[in-house]
Design a protein around this nucleic acid. Sequence first.
DNA 1: GGCAATTAAGTTGTGCACAATCTAATTATA
DNA 2: TATAATTAGATTGTGCACAACTTAATTGCC
Lengths: 148, 148
Amino acid sequence: MKSSLTLEHQICFQLYTASKELTRLYRPILAPLNLTYSQYLVMLVLWEEDNIDLKQLGDRLTLDSGTLSPLVKRLMQLDYVEKVRATDDERRVLLSLTPSGSALREQAEEVPLKVSGMLNIDEATYIAYMEMLIDIKARLRAFGEREE
Amino acid sequence: MKSSLTLEHQICFQLYTASKELTRLYRPILAPLNLTYSQYLVMLVLWEEDNIDLKQLGDRLTLDSGTLSPLVKRLMQLDYVEKVRATDDERRVLLSLTPSGSALREQAEEVPLKVSGMLNIDEATYIAYMEMLIDIKARLRAFGEREE
DNA sequence: GGCAATTAAGTTGTGCACAATCTAATTATA
DNA sequence: TATAATTAGATTGTGCACAACTTAATTGCC
């Protein structure tokens, strides 16, 4: 298998730069919503499922509390979300949308459309690319599980 | 085109998590070399082309001086690289390998092999995936250039 | 030759990303 | 039922990633 030490021949490098460059594309689109890219991902989860606890949120985004805690704090300062401690299990903290956070969804609806337009990609290619990325993750997880 | 606001349906999310998870795979492999993932990318460039100036290096990795300056400082502390100011143009700084930095290459040769093994991917799929990622970047750049 | 515009690096400040550690609540089990 | 093990979340520290700004060298243009 590919063993050349050349930068451009490493899938890790292509993935790393592609991810960075796509995130860069989002920045100006998200700026009017006062969101960073990671904050946008958290909001996506909440618009899908309100009142989710931080643990589930972190699992969904593969982020630990060290990243999420300060990020959520900033979303609270923006008045987009609020935290409520769960009554049944006092360790858990539920995150829910404020009215402003819910209202923001309408503006956010346009984000994927804008991005698709910028990428200039047809549906079939888009799906093929998504499947590739999901497959890469599946292979990574398969290895992780072999190791446990 | 894809306009659902669901997390998993966004190519950006798949790219973002795939990149993070692949980087995570590298961490234990690079730890014995005392390198982070980004530092490894810099070393890859230097093993390919020694005595490169910081500007070119940054272009190659899509990193600006705000990221590279402190990163290179840490590589210097590890005694893997050294900086020399170019004589023809005093603004430029050339980065070159120290003996330890050159010697490290031998150990690094095994990294791509290990990663391929962990990913458990055949050559044809690997190449197809690389091309998809390069295509995504090409589309992003095409948009960037339309905007200039 | 003189001066504005550009360029290369570096610095500062903000926000991830993650390891390691801590606290408090819950669950398991001896 | 004590107490050990586990779990959720927060905190601390390190290292990217990038915008905005600074400094110094070079280039362009009159």
